[in-house]
């Protein structure tokens, strides 16, 4: 099984930067979030980037963006380009195909996130050097590593579920992006409204937040995300079946 998963990962890696044709276009798409989150924001935010939870922004956005574009290509793309039926007619077990594709997408999203975090450290140290090396605290480093992995996995599973229903890569990508970015946008709008309309309530809320132990909050959020992730993995395993796929 492991060997079959590695075989699928080999193929996915070969095709990763060539989906839709151009390797340079794919690299260019990758460059925008990397510059934004590895250079621009850390440069602007300074020491707070490593001392507070600002860097979680990179651990949330990069897996969402990267995995969100790779997974529809990998799953809906196989069907759109009529390669899925041949793959299903091979000796590969369903789960090797599923986990090989997911592992490559998650590895890609997670790996790039970790690289971005390292580059962001270099940026902060160069831009705000005060004679002492600035590093993430162990808790922040751990939170970044774990959160980006969980989010990449959640995004991959969501992507698989959506791709299995979508008829095209474009349709799957659009739906997946809307489904994941819409709650974030909604949160931003809600925050803006709260600031405008319920200013007093917001001030009280912020005072309460000041007393909150953020590490505990993040641990709780992390635990919830792990549960969500486990549920989604179970759901994709139930959905990704040869007999269903050949009919779709």
């Amino acid at each position: 099984m492991i060997r079959d998963i590695l075989t699928v990962m080999w193929k996915e890696r070969k095709g990763l930067f060539r989906q839709g044709g151009s390797r340079s276009r794919a690299l260019l798409t990758l460059l925008v979030p990397v510059i934004m989150l590895a250079i621009f924001l850390p440069w602007q935010i300074g020491a707070d980037w490593v001392e507070t939870y600002w860097s979680i922004l990179a651990s949330v956005l990069i897996p969402l963006l990267l995995v969100g574009t790779v997974i529809p290509e990998s799953f809906a793309g196989e069907r759109e380009r009529y390669t899925l039926s041949t793959l299903l007619a091979s000796r590969l077990p369903d789960r090797a195909i599923l986990f090989g594709k997911i592992a490559m997408a998650v590895g890609y999203g997670w790996g790039i996130t970790l690289i971005v975090l390292i580059i962001s450290l270099v940026t902060v140290n160069i831009a705000h050097w005060d004679g002492q090396l600035m590093l993430f605290t162990p808790t922040i480093a751990l939170v970044n590593i774990v959160f980006s992995l969980i989010l990449a996995s959640i995004m991959a599973c969501l992507g698989v579920l959506i791709s299995l229903r979508a008829s095209t890569v474009q349709g799957a990508t659009q739906f997946l992006m809307a489904a994941t970015l819409f709650p974030l946008i909604l949160l931003q709008v809600a925050g803006f409204l709260v600031l405008q309309v319920w200013r007093e309530w917001f001030d009280n809320f912020m005072n309460t937040l000041a007393t909150v132990n953020w590490t505990q909050v993040i641990l709780i959020i992390g635990a919830v995300l792990v549960l969500v992730c486990a549920g989604l993995i179970w759901a994709v395993m139930a959905r990704f079946k040869r007999a269903r796929l050949i009919l779709s």
Binding site: W10, R18, Y82, T83, T86
Partner: peptide
């Protein structure tokens, strides 16, 4: 019904993949 080849890959890589499979 369809060739089922990975068009972004070379001929050699297509066969290499299935050889590994």
């Amino acid at each position: 019904e369809y060739p089922g080849l990975y068009e972004q890959l070379s001929a050699e890589d297509n066969l290499e993949f299935y050889g590994r499979v």
